[in-house]
Design a protein around this nucleic acid. Structure first.
Lengths: 360, 360
DNA sequence: ATGGGTAATGAAAAGGTTTACATGACTTTC
DNA sequence: GAAAGTCATGTAAACCTTTTCATTACCCAT
């Protein structure tokens, strides 16, 4: 009571302003200024650059803010500052277990630095991609995180002459465009994975998941080849099979393998989903894994440990990837000097039960 | 060329305006108006209410828009309209496989209706929840989707006197607050699940996952009890065990079961994660599933089919849930008369290999 | 005392829309 | 042929900030 009256007195200082206090509309900076007995400029400064305002007035402003429940209108601020403090994340499928923790990492880092995230699920539909660009062009988002592996349709079309918005490609690099990239070192990871199979005595190692179009797949294949070569093993090209990265494609590839006269003893699969398909196919044929065949995946998706046999694989540090890429993007946005335009994180070998020593 | 000149002529009509055409800044409505030779009001109308503008001028406006590459500045529009066309989604863990497709559904429906989504990962941290409310209070989001099962911290505190923003609770209802809800019919689903076990000849059926605090768990427990009662079976209360819904809790509960003198023949688990824990525990003890014990889950999370034995469970129509809840929220937002404040979707029984006839 | 510098504040512009109200031309109606 | 509409458009206010520039008050050194 007492203290309400005190503030009322303050507000009276400036005479009959157009006070809106009892209206139900949210308080504006003007309401705060009125109560604190200062100009709106001072209120703005008190909140955003506290150092530039006298202690006593700052206190009055803070009190007034508390009293009115004022929160600055983000739209007005963004309009004036031309910064929304929002980041648009474009992903082909938000539900993809591969993305889950990357999203969490992205969100965590963004939130920590006062940014919000805005999600666009494109399903690789050019129309949806282009549509989401309006968030960028209309200033609703300051930057772009690309989980799609390619430039969104609208940007591709307008060509490289137009200046691209600040963006970072994550997980899957963008071909033919020097977009900063954050992801796992796929080449090195595949090498480590293959080396592990070799260390278990395997020499006839198949690679399931060759793909000309997907950069990640090519890198992993190269890692596989390098490891084989490094160990002095020759690659039977009939053991290198195409697959598009789905469980079904893995199953199919494994089936195709059985028309050959000779079989590998181990399968290195381009990712866990593919590996799962291979496991399903082999189990269906009655083989005992990992006794009869070893199967190695890549990614360590959430259910890799629940499959039977549980999947030996390379773990992607997803949380880290998310955080690092958001960190990079925000650094770019805030004008910090960014030296590394490519951040490759290490993936770790996760030993489980789908890989065993080659049978003597 | 020719046609550029034509437009230049138009723009000249109004005399020396402050044309900004060659500047690198994005075009504003004023630039368009200048070129089309109309006022900015007309441009706005031509774009937003085409019917209110003469055909000929509308064409000129459209041409001018194309020429300038104009896109309306979302910030300015939102500021003026007090509508951001953004929806804030609050989830405890975006990476949770239970949410994945709900998110996709939410995004799809929102995008279809011209809204964008903004994601807040709260990790059940009151501070983060409260922090995200600024998106609502600052007009950055028009509505709220709650996947958390409770009101975000800031709202709880301010009490029910303050008017709540438009919101819809999804998946997990919010207790003690009449928030519109969209989710699966947990009671009915649990009844169907239990009935299935009963139909397989089981009579000693355990319920793993009792929880006093989680509404969903209580509903499922009630469904279980109702089914048992309906079949004239008595529930051995020692078979009703608490568990918090994690895999680890399921494993622990199953272990606790083995200190009893009598065992159930089937386990109905409050969710798939719990069921997985139970399967792990039973397998570790050397039992042969589903021969020795039947295990039933709930949710049909993504890896339910990859577990061994693959999990018989109740499928949540996640995509539908997401779409329906966004639809409901947007309807509320756009002032449509909303009759149903609760939408319960049916969950379907998914038959797999973790449930079998009771051994004779 | 005077001039120059600094610190705290205010007035007003700018940011880009939408929209209530006004205006003017043209059509209809008696 | 005048009054009453209707239709297309324009003017200007409103939305709520941040920030430039100007102003005032004060202090210090000369």
């Amino acid at each position: 009571m007492d203290h309400k009256a005190r503030f009322a007195g303050h507000s009276g200082d400036r005479g009959g302003g157009k006070s809106n206090l009892n209206a139900s509309k949210p308080a504006t900076i003007e309401d705060v200024a009125l109560i604190a007995g200062v100009s709106i400029a001072t209120v703005s400064r008190a909140l955003n650059e506290p150092g530039k305002v006298a202690d006593s007035t700052r206190r009055r402003v803070i009190d007034a803010v508390a009293q009115t429940g004022y929160t600055t209108n983000a739209m007005a601020r963004s309009l004036r500052m031309r910064r929304s403090h929002m980041i648009l994340i474009l992903a082909p499928d938000v539900g993809d277990p591969n993305f889950s923790n990357i999203l969490v990492g992205l969100e965590t880092e963004a939130s920590k630095r006062g940014y919000g995230i805005l999600i666009g699920n494109t399903q690789n539909d050019p129309e949806r991609e282009a549509n989401y660009l309006r968030f960028i062009s209309s200033n609703q988002a300051d930057g772009l995180i690309l989980l799609t592996g390619h430039l969104p349709y609208g940007l591709t079309a307008s060509g490289p002459n137009k200046k691209l918005p600040p963006m970072v490609a994550v997980n899957e690099p963008v071909a033919n465009a020097s977009i900063p990239f954050v992801g796992v070192d796929n080449f090195e990871g595949a090498r480590v994975a293959t080396d592990h199979l070799i260390s278990q005595g395997h020499t006839r190692i198949a690679f399931i998941g060759k793909s000309l179009s997907r950069t990640v797949a090519s890198l992993r294949e190269r890692g596989y080849r390098t490891a084989m070569q490094g160990a002095g093993l020759t690659i039977d090209e009939r053991f290198v099979l195409e697959a598009d990265g789905t469980t079904e494609s893995g199953r199919g590839a494994a089936e195709r393998m059985f028309v050959r006269d000779q079989l590998p003893t181990a399968f290195f699969c381009v990712n866990d989903a593919t590996a799962l398909g291979v496991i399903i196919a082999l189990s269906a044929r009655g083989y005992d894994l990992p006794l009869d065949f070893s199967v190695m995946g890549f990614d360590d998706i959430s259910y890799a440990s629940f499959v039977t046999p549980s999947l030996t694989t390379m773990k992607q540090p997803r949380l880290q990837i998310g955080e690092a890429s958001m960190d990079l993007l925000l650094a770019m946005l805030e004008g910090e000097e960014v030296k590394k335009r490519e951040i490759l994180l290490r993936s770790d070998l996760i030993l489980r039960n789908s890989v065993a020593m080659r049978r003597a």
